[in-house]
Design a protein around this nucleic acid. Structure first.
Length: 296
RNA sequence: GGUUCUGUAGCUCAGUUGGUAGAGCACGGCACUGAAAAUGCCGGUGUCGCCAGUUCAAUUCUGGCCGGAACCA
């Protein structure tokens, strides 16, 4: 099996720095595993590495889309797998670095995404309850995994049933088998310390011109309904630009949303990925673990 | 110094006509196959300022003490 090194963990733990270091030390190339950094122009709020940092070692799947474009886990799966093959063929080590847990899992494991046409219908006329009732007939098995309040999942299941004529749960063919020999390094630290780091980073983003970055995007015709603008650090500014909130309030919300996000990331990593956890300062120990894994 | 108000969760506060308490925020946990930085779900936070009195029973009533606020001097 091809070897893939993964550097993951919650936001603001120093994944990019570690990945860059290991890429240089171990002849690697970095594949970003991040759902927001794919977008050009979303630099400050997505904590993208600087151009100089990116130039130190090959990076992939950063700045590949305009902010108006859509992107999905299926796109990532296809592109990341192709890149893994290419990088390996060059005799180099593919390193996925990022915190989008679903993307990483969909790349590494045998997730299957069928061909689909068109976008899902948001079914504005159907209430959650009605969707739930229809799914009870169409695909009761899918409902075992979907809470009745979770409109997005209900819609997704309903749309797949409509489009394909097959139950949504039939899509769930994966056996949970890994496709690669992957070592997943997770960066972690005390929660309190991480939250303090995040709060400082948000202030630093503001000082670096987050507001101006968003204003520029809006001027280019990007608006807050775009998928790219659903990211933390961007969506909160909607109410600033509509005059409903002060910038201070927006920054507070960004901090709070990032804290919540960290909790969800931990839940995913703990249960969906087999992570070897380390503190960011344990670089040499991590490097040794990676080198040992590379030899086997 | 006097008068009035006030002290309940980490914070802001609600409440108990006496049977040891609840909201929001914060915090913790969980789910997850096409928006995932998304979308949902669950959870408890506690010497009810301290000491005494009345009472079967006090966070609730009474008294004292301590802390805070406002006004008066």
């Amino acid at each position: 099996m091809q070897k893939v090194l993964v550097i993951s963990g919650p936001t603001a733990t120093g994944k990019s720095d570690l990945a860059r270091y290991l890429a240089k030390e171990l002849n690697g190339e970095i594949i970003s595993g991040d759902s927001i950094q794919v977008y050009r122009g979303l630099d400050i709020g997505s904590a993208k590495e600087t151009e100089a940092e990116q130039a130190e070692v090959p990076h992939h799947l950063i700045d590949i889309l305009d902010p108006q474009q859509r992107y999905s886990v299926k796109d990532f799966q296809l592109q990341s797998r192709r890149l893994i093959a290419e990088i390996s063929a060059r005799g180099r080590l593919p390193i996925i670095a990022g915190g989008t847990g679903l993307y990483i899992r969909a790349c590494l494991y045998d997730y299957v995404f069928e061909e689909e046409e068109g976008e899902d219908d948001p079914c504005p006329a159907l209430s959650n309850q009605e969707l739930y009732q229809r799914l009870q007939e169409l695909d009761p098995r899918a409902l075992e995994k979907i809470h009745p309040n979770n409109r997005k999942r209900l819609l997704r299941a309903y749309n797949v049933c409509q489009k394909s004529g097959m139950p949504f749960s039939a899509n769930d063919k994966a056996k949970g088998e890994p496709l690669y020999d992957a070592l997943i390094i997770g960066l972690t630290m005390e929660r309190e310390e991480l939250y303090a780091r995040i709060d400082r980073r948000v202030e630093a983003m503001a000082a670096a011109g987050l507001r101006e970055e968003i204003a520029g995007l809006l001027q280019q015709g990007v608006d807050f309904s775009c998928q790219s603008m659903q990211g933390i650090g961007y969506k909160e500014y909607k109410e600033y630009f509509s005059g409903e909130k002060s910038e201070e309030e927006c920054l507070q919300l960004i901090k709070s949303h990032t804290h919540h996000f960290v909790k969800r990331q931990y839940t995913w990593f703990r249960h969906q990925l087999n992570v070897s956890w380390h503190e960011p300062q344990e670089r040499e120990k991590i490097r040794q673990e990676v080198e040992t894994w590379l030899k086997n």
